[in-house]
């Protein structure tokens, strides 16, 4: 803004660099990111202890078909008498596992490529980015379907395919952030002081890219959970696995709608939506927190 008063005063602010431990503390202090974190913790808890809490085993088929919620089956039963609650408790962990693994793999590859490409520039950058550009133009969904159609239907395959398709985007995001950081005085100073390239990347740049990586890990995790559910819904991937996606697949193929079996359809979808909202809350909280800090650098 032209001659804006706040801008003029901002220049005068001074301050140290942000340590990652401060970031965690501020994340808890911010209302939005705290709400997001709490939701994640609850789901992680269900994911880990869910199988032990489940009143029935996932293979139990003793209930009546399409039975609405009762005391014996708190979330009713499905088309062959599975206990829906038990399926949900067991499936949460699997869905979260798939989402988290995909996010971690693609964030790891994306960060390495993005950091190297952004920091070193030149031929490394051109070569990597041409590959990334082509992968980004290729529409993801059809590619996802055809790869899953040909490769063996296991959760590991799904994870690998999703990771391969997600890292290019991640590397683009990291790269552009590194390019801006490179122009900042403290990086220039580090270069002039003769610090080695890898040391600058890991000590200085990485610290400042961290918030961005955290946001995108969370977004990618939710996106991967949705994508896995979508693939399962398409009849792809491991249909014997118990997770949110396969629940919806069977609900669709076995006409849950016609039987008005809302108790079977609602839990997985609501969970995905709640995770999505939590990710958004966490993201905007993190932006607020790290944005404030960024102003002080």
């Amino acid at each position: 803004m032209i001659g804006n008063y706040q801008n003029e005063t901002e220049i005068k602010k001074k301050g140290g660099l942000v340590g990652s431990e401060n970031l965690l503390v501020s994340l808890f202090r911010n209302k939005k990111s705290r709400a997001g974190l709490i939701v994640f913790v609850i789901f992680a808890f269900i994911g880990i202890v869910g199988p032990f809490l489940a009143p029935y085993s996932a293979s139990y088929t003793g209930g009546a078909n399409f039975q609405p919620p009762t005391n014996a089956h708190l979330l009713g039963t499905d088309y062959i008498g599975h206990d829906v609650l038990s399926w949900f408790l067991v499936g949460t962990g699997v869905s979260l596992y798939v989402g988290l693994t995909v996010a971690l793999i693609s964030v790891a590859i994306g960060s390495i490529v993005g950091l190297a490409s952004g920091y070193y520039g030149g031929i490394v950058d051109s070569a990597l980015m041409r590959v990334v550009d082509i992968l980004l133009i290729l529409p993801g969904f059809p590619l996802l379907v055809i790869l899953s159609a040909y490769l063996p239907p296991t959760n590991t395959t799904t994870i690998l395919i999703l990771a391969i398709l997600s890292w290019p985007f991640m590397s683009r995001v990291i790269r552009s952030q590194v390019l801006t950081l490179k122009e900042r005085p403290f990086i220039k100073a580090a270069v002039l002081s003769g610090m080695s390239g890898s040391k600058i990347i890991f000590k200085e740049i990485f610290k400042h890219v961290m918030p961005l990586i955290a946001i995108n890990t969370v977004y990618l995790m939710v996106a991967a959970i949705v994508a896995q559910a979508g693939l399962a819904f398409f009849g792809l991937g491991d249909l014997n696995s118990v997770n949110w996606g396969t629940s919806l697949y069977w609900a669709q193929t076995e006409d849950a709608v016609i039987y008005n079996a809302w108790w079977w359809i609602v839990p997985p979808g609501i969970s995905i939506a709640v995770l999505g909202i939590a990710a958004n809350l966490f993201g905007s909280g993190l932006t607020e927190v790290s944005g404030e800090k960024a102003g002080e650098i």
């Binding site: 032209i2 001659g3 003029e8 005063t9 220049i11």
Partner: peptide, 11 residues
Amino acid sequence: ESGSGKSTLGL
């Protein structure tokens, strides 16, 4: 100096 109000006067 910046923040002294000279730009604010212009605006």
